[in-house]
Amino acid sequence: MSKIAGRFRQLAEQGRKALIPYVVAGDPTLDATVPLMHRLVAAGADIIELGVPFSDPMAEGPVIQVAHERALAHGTSLRDALALVTEFRRDDSTTPLLLMGYTNPVERMGFAAFADAAAEAGVDALLTVDLPPEEVGLVNLELQRVGMDNIFLVAPTTPQQRIGRITGEASGFVYYVSLKGVTGAGNLDLDAVSAGVAAIRESTELPVAVGFGIKDAASARAVAAIADGVVVGSALVDCVAQAIACGGDQGSAIDAAGDLLQEIRQGIDSIAS
C-alpha cells in the first residue's frame, strides 16, 4: 500500500479527515520551504502538497501566481524542489508528500528521469494540472514503475461517464476541484461540492479530497463533512506573503502559516466522527 493510501486508511479508522496544505517550493525563499513544511506537519498536516514553480501557471489565481513568480525569481527549478524533498525527508520519513505542478518541467527533465529522481528523493505522488487522462499514458507507466501515485483532478464540469475514465487512471486519492475557476477563487458552493463528491464515489473507492476556495476553519470544516480530505493552498501562501509584507522575518511568517493551519485543523476535527 502506498504511503498516501496508508495515511487515508489510518485516518478513516480514526474517523478523521485529511488536511493537505499546499505551499510552493522556493517561496518565499529556498531556505524557508523545508522549515515551513515541518511547521505545517506539526500544525496537523496529514499530507504535504509541494508546488513546483512554473513560468505559466494557467490554473492558478493571483496569490499562487505571484508565489510562483517569487520562487522563479531566485531560480527554483524542479531539481531544486526535489532537493527540498530530500532535505525534508531527513527529519520526516512518514508524512506523505505530493508534488503538484505543470507538465513541461517534468517532460523537460524526462518522465523516466523524473520518476527515478522523485522516488529517490521521497516523493509519494504527482499531480500534473495540465495532464488529463488522455495525455497521461507515458507518465503513468513511469510513476507505476517506481511505485508513485498519480493524482487526478475531477471538476464540476466533468460528466459522470468521464469520471470513471479518470478514476481508472488514478491512485492514492481523487482531487475534486470545488469550483469553476482558478485556485483561491471565492465562489464555494457546498451543495454542488456535495453532489460532485457523491458522483466520484459512484465510480471509485479511492478517497476524495476537495480543494480550491477553502480558506479558513469554517470552510474547511464544512468541506470535511462532505469529503475525505481538504486541500488548503492560497490562504496559506497568502498568509506567509502578508507576514513578510508587514515586515515580519521568515521565522514569524512560518509561524503565522502554522497557526492558520492549526486553526483549520481544529475546525476539521470539530466535526462529529
Partner: peptide
Amino acid sequence: ENGRFGEYGGKFVSETLMSA
C-alpha cells in the same frame, strides 16, 4: 481524433476545460 499532429498538439489543459 486525439488532436495530434504526429507527436504534437493534444489537449494539455486542466480538467475543468475538458468537457468544454
